[in-house]
Design a binder for these strands. Structure first.
Lengths: 197, 197, 197, 197
DNA sequence: AATGAATGAGGGTTCATTCAT
DNA sequence: TATGAATGAACCCTCATTCAT
């Protein structure tokens, strides 16, 4: 319908304030317990102003999921540039993700809740992430560093590892050093768990 | 608080009907869109009967998470009995879990939503599951089949793999054969992704 | 409809337990916050048994108002027998009522709430009480102890005094000695408040 | 807690409509049988608008008790200004109160029901009123018109008289002329009931 | 008579969204 | 654009009463 893109600077500022307030509110309370009026209260704007920038509660949540998804990517990407090999690259990806989760604990509540609020965003986030991992693995295989048969299954497996290690050591308990976690995961990815004589 | 345990057979039957109806309703609609009246409609009881057995919508959800958690365990346990070695055992656990997820797709919506509805249940479910995996790994290490340093990190990593493979291949797309997935995961767990000679 | 009078001794005991439990429950919680199930729980009977003895929640409340009304009367009546004169008689009536209120604080919550639950009982209670007072005053006038023109207005005025002094000094604050209150009231009734030379 | 004070004129008008509607509804039906939706229907506002101005059904009731209490005071105060002496002053207070009760019969249902809905308001109303009467009596004593020992007991006694005469002759039966009632009460207050040769 | 499960109407409250200024 | 009042659908929960055993 209406074009919600702000035309003025003041508008852009208001939009930004709303997004930040929403991230905090959804992160603290979850989607259903969060209220538009609490978001505008945090943002310091009038309730009605919300609808100048978003069509609905769902719409701002969707925008937030995309935003968060992009921020993880933007945080991980530089961390894995120039990794010496494919295995090390995945270890660095995990370490970067863990660090991000520690700084933005709301990411879990927001992305996980998308499963219920906006399943399409949820699925898109994980399918995109998995594709990115699969591409890295493929290029590792092409470089002869990984087995030639690595594919989608391995990508999803790695993603699952990352997500759960992020929850366990990035959100629930942040006392363990990130590097120790990453090193253990790295060895699992690289050589597996079986004992080698 | 109040003792909601049925004293008669009729009561026990009603309680069971309510739990089954709730599993279906929460699975299809999610916690917030599910309504007590829809649950009792499915169960074929009066609205008020719900409160004879549960104190609140939250209470039945909590009961359901515990129930689901127990059912996964009960389904996986026999499948891994008598596995020839620790690596195979984990492959079979994954295969059994995938099969369970295909038959009970509501498990994801219910357990995942616990993160928001009842965080304590959510955390309890995953911590219990991780502990179980860690114990299996430890016994594999004791048997000399696994590296001696496997521990909590590896358990959470395996759990994450299982959960995401279950989502991808057990719920979202069930066309791939379970065994192929399990085999790939098995190789990852056993020997890692690095190319060997 | 059904005859609710108990035929057996066991029945009579149950009925008594229900009435006592109801007095306590209505007194503590008020009519609307009291629940039948709480009454039966106090009485130690099953919920369903309530309806063996009373047709409804209103019915037991009505029974209780009548009971209370009768108990006040039965407590006051002997106290005023043989009073030397009409003024003293009213003073003793007040003192007896105050003492009763101190021992049965629930009387206010029960009789006052009848104004809302069962206006007919409420009105009946006060009209009966006023008539009783009016008769005492009339006999005092006939005996030449009181002015000849005392009538209904004076009876209602005395009743109002008693009720409010009972609330103030019988329920809300029981530290003042009953006799002092009664003496002050007595003097007001007897000779008024105006200063006499 | 939350600031429910209207910021606009439109808001102030809505608030007033709600209060008036609530007075009528509570007066006719009593607190428990009154419903918020009936109040908003009377007020001609949407159901939700109620919660723009009041936090709960209890809150508007509490507001109403304070309002009523203030209106009685504001109606009686001018009527007793310039009374020639303390006894006459009390007679006029009663007459003014009787007249007010005839015009605002809902006052009894509202204030009496506060005993159950909001005991603090109930007690506050009567303690305030009694204090006001006690002060008038004290000033009458200081002026040498009343006995020097009049105090709290007499104030509560007079208040009880007024309340019950107001109920009997202001609400239940309005056929008797106000002045006749007041005159009789006046004589009781002034000189008591004992016969004077 | 006693028991306790079953029934369902009813109402308070929330809050996303719309509207008037 | 901004403001904040207005709207009303939706739903959880209570509990008096009935019923089957």
């Amino acid at each position: 319908m209406a074009d919600k893109t702000p035309r003025t600077d003041r508008g852009r500022r208001t939009l930004r304030k709303l997004l930040d307030a929403a991230a905090a509110e959804f992160g603290e309370r979850g989607f259903h317990d969060a209220s538009i009026s609490a978001i505008t209260r945090r943002a310091g704007t009038a309730l009605g102003s919300f609808y100048t920038y978003f069509d609905s509660k769902d719409a701002i949540f969707r925008a937030l999921v995309a935003d968060m998804s992009g921020r993880v990517r933007d945080h991980v990407a530089p961390a894995i540039e120039g990794a010496p090999d494919a295995i090390t690259r995945e270890g660095r990806a995990l370490a970067a993700f863990l660090a991000f989760a520690r700084d933005h604990q709301e990411i879990y509540r927001i992305i996980d809740e998308a499963e219920f609020v906006d399943p399409a965003s949820f699925r898109a986030h994980y399918e995109t992430t998995a594709r990115r991992i699969a591409e890295r693995l493929a290029s590792g295989a092409a470089a002869g560093e990984l087995r030639a048969d690595v594919g989608e299954v391995e990508a999803w497996a790695l993603m699952g590892m990352n997500v759960f290690l992020g929850l366990r050591y990035g959100v629930w308990d942040t006392s363990a050093p990130v590097d120790a976690i990453a090193a253990a995961a790295n060895r699992l990815i690289g050589e597996g768990l079986a004992r080698r004589d």
